[in-house]
Computed example of a mutant assay.
Amino acid sequence: MIIDAWAQHPTLRHAQDPIFASLHRWNKTEPPKEEIPLSLTIAAMDAAKIEKSLISAWQAPGRDMISNDEVASFVKKYPDRLIGVGSVDISKPMQAVREIKRCVEDLGFKAIRVLPWLSEAPPTDRRFYPIYVACCEMGVPFCTQIGHTGPLMSSEVGRPIYLDQVALDFPELVIVGGHIGYPWTQEAIAVATKHENVFIDTSAYTAKRYPEELIAFMRGHGAKKVLFGTNYPMIFPQKALEHLDRLALSDEAKELFLGGNAKRVFKI
């Protein structure tokens, strides 16, 4: 089983948001002019033999880029293929706590994702702490981005070392840091090694671009700590999996990376 730990089916307002101009420049693409059909996302999964994708809502301060209800509607159409990941606005803590409960209890989501750079606040900011409590109480992982930001926003808030303090304060909280933490990948590995419930996902990077220190971690004592992810549609699953053999993983490590770890972490 291959599970994509970080994907999204973008709404048109998400895909056209000016914040992603730098990504379109990198990929030499133009923002879409029409809504992307959900069938295209499923076809992209099929092409790479992805059995399940965790698709994320996007909540920026004051606006839904991809709402939780939209994600729920996507999952409803393909319940055997898509798994919902909710998002909340940390500037409204009590509303966010209630929304996390709704996401888990009513919508059946398996995790909550909040991106620090959207609020220009590190994960140690006091506004995040009610989110962590709610995730602990609801028994779902907290997912976030670690590393530099592709969009033209501050990267400092993505330093993986911030998660060290969060994990110390909330040892019960399962934390998944996406985007491998580059250029601070060694920080990410150190934090994941130190804390039982901290994990890394490889979204936004193709296998060809994984840093050597991450590959060594996956081959060794970090085999149970790294999850495959794409950040689709930025990277299509088939492209993300190219050069997978370059990693030279054992059969066991490869199975854990592609699906076993995600299955355990997200209770799939």
Rank of each mutant, 00 (worst) to 15 (best):
F217A: 01
I268C: 09
M1L: 03
Q238W: 10
G62Q: 02
I36L: 04
V226F: 04
A216G: 01
A240Q: 00
A192Q: 12
F266T: 01
A60K: 06
V166P: 07
P37W: 10
K92P: 00
D89C: 00
P183R: 11
Q95E: 15
T230R: 04
A43W: 03
R209V: 11
D80M: 02
A121V: 11
D17C: 07
G86M: 05
S39A: 12
A207T: 02
D80H: 10
I90K: 05
L38S: 12
T206S: 00
I235P: 06
F20G: 04
I42F: 02
T124S: 12
W26L: 15
I3M: 03
K263G: 01
F199I: 10
P160F: 02
C143K: 02
K263E: 15
F217Y: 15
V97P: 04
D164P: 00
T144L: 11
G84A: 09
F128A: 10
A44T: 07
I3A: 01
Q16L: 04
L12S: 05
A57D: 01
I100D: 11
A57W: 01
N27H: 12
L54G: 02
T144D: 10
K263D: 13
L107P: 08
L107D: 02
S67W: 04
Y162G: 03
G220C: 11
I268K: 03
K52P: 01
K92T: 14
E99V: 08
I36G: 00
D201H: 08
H179N: 12
P130F: 08
R127Q: 09
M94S: 14
Q145S: 15
A223G: 13
A204H: 09
W6V: 10
S155I: 03
